[in-house]
Amino acid sequence: MIDRLWRLGSGMRLFMLIIVSSGESFRRLHLTIREIYFTGVLSMQIILVSGFFVGMVLALQMFYVLRQFGSPDYTGVVLALSIIRELGPVVTALLFAGRAGTAITAEIGLMKANEELSAMEMMAVSPIARVVAPRFWAGVISMPILAVMFSMVGILGGYLVAVPMLGVDDGAFWSQMQAQVDFRFDILNSVIKSLVFGVACTMIALFEGFDAPPTAEGVSYATTRTVVTSSLAILGLDFILTSLMLTV
């Protein structure tokens, strides 16, 4: 318990150091842009393909359930609301933790084991400003963009199954969606969720890497912890955020 509290405190300290060092980091914007490529652009493949299949499966399931109630035209609305409100931010964050989070933890853990971070310190260069802060902001910026892309591709996948394959009316599919999906309540809240997930996932990945014992076993253990802790944090935060958004 004390160990967990200690780690939580260390994580908060690292977060504060990142915020303080961000100005120094933003002055060298190319570092953050480079990290956006590694965490965001290189995650696009898994995010887009997953989004496409999730949308297709969801459309299939929704169509057969809604047809029993005589409302197959609502497939588009249910699909869009499920993806935008929940699946988009949550599945994107889970995939991000597995793809980019583990890469961040392993990279920083190995840099520590290889004394690269100590070397930077001895060269009077802050590893927080040079290595950690650019990765943090890259994660925070990438996550909402990836979640929006996931949702768009998911809806497109659902459309291809619902309209050409299952015969849902084209006009009803889009017009019902347009009428029922609210920009502030659905889309903006979805972006807020993915921003929070972005902060949580990236912080966990960075902290685990920074805190990893400088051995092969230590880095391997830290990488596993990143996936487990991030996944639990995403699901827990999703419940809290959804409760707040639905009640406030």
Binding site: L110, M111, N114, E115, E116, S118, A119, E121, M122, M123, A124
Partner: peptide
């Protein structure tokens, strides 16, 4: 102050610690 002092120092690490 510490960074000012470190600018006067150079250190060779045991395994080189080159940025990979």
């Amino acid at each position: 102050g510490l960074y000012d002092l470190r600018r006067k120092m150079g250190m060779l690490f045991q395994r080189g610690a080159l940025f990979s």
